[in-house]
């Protein structure tokens, strides 16, 4: 899974039928040391109701279709968790 920050949402009115119903999030991959964005973006299905600015991680590839909310959907990236705490070398480097 990859660490990312929710930087926006993607709205698409004309899309594949099975893409209906789930929010599409714009995610920016982040570097866990600096917690800064890496200017690499991906569109992911929102499996957990993540909000703008929240730190999440997402699963990619076929795993993205295994979340309860995305079973059988044509997605290759799904947000599966909202991060509360990142702890590195004994100290907390991120707290929600």
């Amino acid at each position: 899974m990859i660490l990312a920050r929710v930087s926006g949402t993607v709205v698409s009115s004309r899309k594949a039928e099975k893409m209906e119903g789930l929010r599409l999030l714009l995610l920016e991959k982040i570097d866990p040391i600096s917690m800064k964005g890496k200017n690499e973006f991906v569109v992911a299905m929102d499996g957990v109701g993540a909000g703008l600015g929240e730190i999440v991680f997402y699963v990619s590839g076929s795993g993205a279709r295994m979340a309860e909310t995305t079973l059988g959907l044509p997605t290759d990236a799904t947000v599966t968790a909202i991060v509360d705490v990142i702890e590195q070398n004994g100290n907390i480097s991120y707290q929600k």
């Binding site: 899974m1 309860e68 909202i82 509360d84 990142i86 702890e87």
Partner: peptide, 22 residues
């Protein structure tokens, strides 16, 4: 292993799943 990731909202339903930063 660089650290640990804690998330209370997790849609993967692996009870007690321990997520590590690599």
């Amino acid at each position: 292993i660089a650290g640990t990731i804690t998330s209370s909202v997790n849609g993967t339903d692996i009870p007690g799943g321990r997520y590590l930063l690599i």
